[in-house]
Amino acid sequence: MIKDVIIGIRSTLILWILTALIYPFLMIFLGQTVFPYQANGSLIKDNQDKIIGSALIGQTFTSDRYFNSRPSVINYSEGENAQPTGISGASNLAPSNPDLIKRVEKTIVDLQKAQIQSTADLVYTSGSGLDPHISVESARLQIPRIAASRNLDSNQLEILITKHTEHRFLGIFGEPGVNVLKLNLALDQTQ
């Protein structure tokens, strides 16, 4: 019996060393050496090497000079306790929830005021609330507003959208989309 206990303790220690120490540090090493950009959050920096966002997390843009992103339930950059970020978040409200219905209706009214046709991705949050992409159609519907506010030709914006369209993963998964942060950064560089 003592022999079985010793074997059990030894097996537990070996598995713990493998799964709690060796494997995590191996993954950190591989991530930092093979995929450092992705392993560190896919951070996007400006010309002064200041972090301005992540390519993986949606941000809020409200100015007429920028493409609007998907709505977010969590607005860290609004209110008296505002943080200097515009990152997103999700909720688990049911489609029949009055708070969700009110938020969706308000978003539709805001889009109508900005003379933007409502599309699903401009009205509803993504499942995670973190998606930084909008559809190509949603980006194109915003061209007249941005062209007018920046005094740009619509064709310039169309080319910019086409250039920043991310296609289906492996050619079959997902839908083509546009990363709003990357598109807005490229938009700022056009002027």
Rank of each mutant, 00 (worst) to 15 (best):
I2L: 15
V5S: 11
I7W: 12
I7F: 12
G8I: 10
G8P: 12
I9K: 06
R10M: 14
L13G: 15
I14V: 14
W16Q: 02
I17L: 15
L18A: 14
A20M: 14
L21P: 04
L21Q: 01
F25P: 09
F25K: 08
L26Q: 12
L26I: 08
I28S: 05
L30C: 05
G31N: 02
G31I: 01
Q32C: 15
P36T: 01
P36K: 00
Q38F: 00
A39Q: 10
N40G: 02
N40V: 03
S42D: 03
I44T: 08
D46R: 00
D46Y: 03
D49Q: 02
D49K: 01
A55F: 01
T62I: 02
Y66C: 09
P71D: 09
S72T: 07
I74P: 04
I74G: 03
Y76E: 14
S77L: 07
N81Q: 12
N81I: 11
A82P: 08
A82K: 12
T85A: 13
I87H: 03
S88I: 07
G89R: 05
A90N: 15
A90C: 10
A90R: 15
A94I: 13
A94V: 12
A94M: 12
S96N: 07
D99W: 06
L100S: 06
R103G: 03
T107A: 08
T107V: 03
V109G: 09
D110C: 08
L111E: 13
L111K: 14
Q112F: 15
K113C: 03
A114R: 07
I116H: 08
S118T: 04
S118R: 03
T119Q: 14
T119G: 08
L122D: 05
Y124T: 00
Y124W: 08
T125R: 00
S128N: 12
S128P: 10
S128I: 05
G129H: 03
L130D: 04
D131K: 00
D131N: 12
D131P: 13
H133F: 15
H133P: 15
S135N: 02
E137K: 15
R140Q: 15
L141E: 06
L141P: 11
R145Y: 07
N151T: 02
N151P: 05
N151I: 06
S154V: 01
S154M: 07
L157F: 06
L157W: 11
T162C: 04
T162M: 00
T165Q: 08
R168I: 02
F169H: 01
G171L: 00
F173H: 01
E175R: 11
V178E: 03
V178R: 09
K182H: 06
N184D: 07
L185M: 09
A186R: 11
L187T: 09
Q189F: 06
T190F: 11
Q191E: 09
